[in-house]
């Protein structure tokens, strides 16, 4: 009977949605295979997290609180999670494939000497564990099997459907005992970037601009549509390399791999490296004045027209719909 532990990520108290997506999937797996779903919270105040965990199907919520968990430190948090996994022995620890989760997952697995699979989009538990994940930035998928009786799996945000399913959510404090553990690296400061928009890998909607926007001054068209949609703003590498926007916006094989519900590509030709990073998006819209642009091969909806006309008009229309 597998017990699945789900890492509930927070930064400065803000909880990450991917935790509840993972919990919903863990609940579905456990309802079929038996076992329990556990939330694992590291932070200072577990109140909100415990409530939400119960709503999304956690039988138990283990809370690791204290000064060590006020701000993220990979060594301390990794050690704490590894100690938790040793003591409570869940078969599976799920972490979101976020900046924090990508740092933490492999670290915990190394401390446990168990497998770590990153960026998964599917889990199967019958007898053993089978994990589905994209490789080559989504040009191909693999199903991998995991050996050993414990594993850490990183889950891509938006891979699993959120589903409310109330469970006991019994809160239990866990003390990992971190006295004497060397923090090794220390975060001196955190700087927020301007904009305050949702981040690409977590966004449900992304609006990306390519070389077709012609200059840095026009990226604001992309941002305005993104804001109207509550979306993240992305870019092709051409736009990033030209210095029009920061690299953190780049989508593609050497940028972010994304899979939102809606991806709008404006003035992007659809080079293979760009397609690799976004072709698993659920709905793709292409706005391009060249009807032969390869982006139309992956698009669900296409508009062959000048983006300088269509993007502002679409921004207005979205405003009307979303009020």
């Amino acid at each position: 009977m597998p017990n699945i532990a789900v890492f509930i990520e927070q930064r400065d108290g803000a909880l990450k949605k991917v935790a509840w997506q993972m919990m919903s999937e863990a609940r579905r797996l456990v309802d079929a295979a038996g076992g329990e779903v556990w939330g694992v919270f590291l932070g200072t105040d577990a109140g909100e997290a415990s409530g939400l965990a119960a709503r999304y199907g956690a039988d138990k919520v283990f809370t690791l609180t204290g000064d060590a968990f006020a701000t993220y430190n990979s060594e301390l948090w990794g050690t704490a999670l590894a100690k938790f996994c040793k003591a409570q022995a869940p078969q599976l620890l799920l972490v979101g494939s976020t900046a924090m989760g990508k740092d933490l997952g492999p670290k915990v697995s190394a401390k446990l000497g168990c497998a770590c699979v990153s960026d998964a989009v599917g889990l199967k538990l019958d007898g053993g564990l089978e994990v589905r994940r994209p490789v080559f930035a989504g040009k191909c998928f693999t199903d991998v099997t995991v050996n050993g009786d414990q594993a850490v799996v990183g889950i891509r945000p938006n891979a699993f459907v959120l589903e409310e399913k109330a469970a006991a959510g019994a809160v239990e404090a866990f003390d990992p005992g971190l006295d004497g553990v060397d923090a090794k690296a220390v975060v001196k400061s955190v700087e927020a970037s301007a904009g305050g928009r949702v981040e690409l890998t977590e966004a449900e909607i992304i609006v990306s601009g390519g070389r077709g926007i012609k200059g840095p001054e026009n990226y604001v068209l992309i941002e305005k549509l993104a804001d109207a949609l509550g979306a993240a703003a992305g870019a092709s590498r051409a736009v990033v390399d030209a210095g029009w926007v920061d690299y953190s916006h780049q989508v593609g094989q050497t940028g972010k791999t994304v899979g939102p519900n809606l991806y709008i590509a404006a003035g992007i030709s659809g080079a293979i490296q760009h397609l690799a990073g976004m072709s698993s998006s659920k709905c793709i819209v292409a706005i391009n004045k060249d009807a032969n642009a390869p982006i139309f091969k992956v698009a669900d909806y296409g508009v062959v027209a000048d983006l300088f006309d269509v993007v502002p008009a679409l921004t207005d229309e979205v405003g009307k719909i979303r009020g």
Partner: peptide
């Protein structure tokens, strides 16, 4: 610890 069992097209 991890073995690839199958590759499949998207």
């Amino acid at each position: 610890l991890v073995d690839i069992k199958m590759y499949s097209p998207p």
